[in-house]
Structure formats: C-alpha cells, structure tokens
Computed example of a mutant assay.
Amino acid sequence: MNNSKNDVADQLAKEGGMMEQIQHNPSYNEAKTLINSALDCHWRQEHPQHNSKDAIHKLSRAEQVTIFRLRTGHNRLKHHLFSRFKIGDGPNCPCGANRQDAQHVLQDCPLLDDARLKYWPEPREMNQKLYGSALQLGITVEFIYASDLTI
C-alpha cells in the first residue's frame, strides 16, 4: 500500500517539475541571507581547521592580538622583522640563539628561564601556550608582557 502512495507522490512531483515555474525575485533581505549563507559555506570549506570554540575569543582585544601574532609569526620579534623587512641588526636573539621567534621566546630562551618558570612551573607544550584554554592563553600573554618583549 505504501508503495502505491510513494509512486503517486513521485508521479505528482515529476508532473509539477515539468510545469512552468513562477519567477520569484527575492527581496533584498532574502538575497542578503542567501549570499551570506553561500559565503559562509564557502569559507567553512576553505578553512576546515577553524575552531569556533577557540579560547582566544574570550580574551581582550589586546590579548587576542598578542596571541594571534605569536601564532602566525607576524610579530615584532627580531627574526620576523629582520627576515621580512630587513629591520634591525639580524634575526638572532640577544641570548645568542639563531633566531628570536615565538618558539624560542616561549620555550627555549635562557634569558627568559626565570620568567618562564614563574608562569609555567611545570613544562608546557607550545600548543598549550598558543591554543590552550583561556586561562593558558592568559598566562602566555602575561609572560610576554612581563618579558618586556614587543610583540
């Protein structure tokens, strides 16, 4: 019995599809919604790694900028300024390391060992410092501010 009802529904859908369709011009708001939806869908496909629950959104604007600059490497540390813009005397850290970048500052620089131990008594992975909870990101920002580095 259900098959005959489905067959009838399919037949009616086919007939309806062959009928002349009424042209409907969307209103401004409908068009805007359709365009935004399409752009959002496209953006999500192009950025599958995006995490809308990223704790960075819980920080102040200034703190977000600091974390973002550390994440992307587009910052005011010597390595980026020298290699990108030829600003400064070279990419090396004052401690003598090959490059002063986020990895070096947050994890390795001996000049910042005391501050690092104060903010992270237990060792933390770079990923936790830059992509962890809001608390972990806040600690990273405080460390950077305390280190007197311009990020």
Rank of each mutant, 00 (worst) to 15 (best):
N3C: 08
K5L: 13
D7R: 14
Q11G: 09
L12N: 10
E15L: 09
M18V: 02
M19R: 13
E20V: 13
I22G: 04
I22Q: 12
Q23S: 12
H24L: 14
P26C: 02
E30L: 07
E30M: 10
E30R: 08
K32N: 13
T33C: 08
L34A: 15
S37F: 03
A38E: 08
A38R: 09
L39I: 12
L39Y: 09
C41L: 12
H42A: 15
W43C: 01
W43A: 04
E46N: 09
P48A: 09
S52H: 11
S52V: 11
D54T: 06
K58C: 06
K58E: 12
S60M: 07
R61W: 13
E63I: 04
I67V: 10
I67Q: 03
R71P: 03
R71G: 03
T72H: 07
G73L: 00
H74A: 05
N75L: 01
K78E: 04
H79K: 15
F82N: 05
S83Q: 07
F85V: 00
F85M: 01
F85R: 03
G88N: 05
D89R: 11
G90T: 04
P91D: 02
N92F: 11
C95Q: 05
C95S: 07
A97V: 03
Q100R: 02
Q100E: 15
D101V: 05
A102K: 00
A102S: 15
Q103P: 03
H104I: 01
D108N: 10
D108P: 02
D108L: 09
C109V: 00
D113E: 15
A115R: 11
A115D: 11
L117W: 11
L117F: 09
K118V: 05
Y119V: 07
Y119I: 04
W120K: 02
P121V: 09
E122S: 15
R124W: 10
R124K: 14
R124D: 06
R124I: 07
N127Y: 15
Q128C: 07
L130M: 05
G132W: 03
A134Y: 03
A134N: 06
A134K: 07
E142W: 02
F143R: 08
I144Q: 01
Y145G: 02
S147G: 03
S147M: 04
T150Q: 09
I151C: 05
I151R: 01
I151N: 01
I151P: 00
